[in-house]
């Protein structure tokens, strides 16, 4: 192999521009983080709501929430991206559609965030549902028996324990959000993968480019993992099996 290594490439100017390749990658990194974190916040809020709805004593609500989850879980993320970006504006009333296509600020960013947020919400919802259903049935009864309403029982009794239980599976969902955000490049969000591809074509130093990008993605996933580990430790309940194991 005759590859010409050049680790200095990151500090070189891009062709026909006045910024460095490093600038490109860092901008991309910024967009990746922005899309991922916004999508994650949205996914958590919606996912918890949907996960709860899948466990309530109402067939209509359970069916609606189940349909939502299955819809967003079973269509490939890339296809969803295209649907939101190209198809959705056509389905809106004409003047709204026009506004979305021509005037909406940062439309790639918002489209990508909403799409990734909805996709991830279906996965969060599944974990939350499983967590609630894994609780001993008596907890719900105990909450209701003291006069709490059903929403109060979820809020104060079921969710605090269920959510603690699902921190480990949610950790991998959080890490997945960063990885999945790379799909946003397909609709033109100038995130990390987009910038990497551009740098590779512009500089012809593909290996350095993708090694650097790999490192940046790794930093995202690793930080997500650490943040969740801290949350898990801070919220651990004294006297539970997990707590006893951690103490010893």
């Amino acid at each position: 192999m005759n590859y010409h290594w050049n680790w200095g490439i990151f500090l070189e100017q891009v062709k026909g521009g006045d910024e460095t390749y490093l600038n490109w990658l860092l901008t991309g990194f910024g967009w990746t983080v922005a899309v991922s974190l916004s999508a994650w916040v949205m996914a958590l809020a919606l996912g918890i709501l949907l996960g709860v709805l899948r466990t309530v004593p109402s067939r209509a609500l359970v069916a609606a929430a189940t349909a939502w989850v299955e819809l967003f879980r079973n269509i490939p993320l890339l296809v969803q991206m295209f649907l939101w970006f190209f198809v959705m504006p056509e389905l809106l009333p004409a003047d709204w559609g026009l506004w979305v296509k021509q005037e909406m600020p940062a439309k790639e960013f918002f489209t990508a965030t909403i799409c990734l947020g909805l996709f991830t919400s279906s996965r969060v919802a599944e974990q939350v549902r499983a967590g609630i259903q894994a609780l001993p049935g008596g907890q719900l009864m105990a909450g209701l028996a003291m006069g709490l309403t059903l929403p109060q029982t979820y809020r104060h009794v079921l969710l605090p324990t269920a959510l603690r239980m699902v921190v480990p599976p949610l950790t991998s969902e959080f890490m997945n959000v960063f990885k999945n955000s790379s799909v946003a490049f397909a609709i033109g969000v100038m995130e990390l993968t987009f910038q990497a591809k551009q740098m590779q074509e512009d500089s012809e130093q593909g290996i350095e480019t993708f090694l650097a990008v790999t490192l940046l993605y790794f930093i995202c996933a690793f930080s997500a993992n650490r943040v969740m580990a801290v949350i898990e430790r801070r919220t651990r309940i004294p006297g539970t099996a997990a707590d006893v194991a951690a103490q010893s």
């Binding site: 009864m141 105990a142 539970t240």
Partner: peptide, 10 residues
């Protein structure tokens, strides 16, 4: 109401 398995909120 008091339950067989206590059902305190852990």
């Amino acid at each position: 109401m008091v339950f067989q398995h206590f059902e305190l909120f852990p």
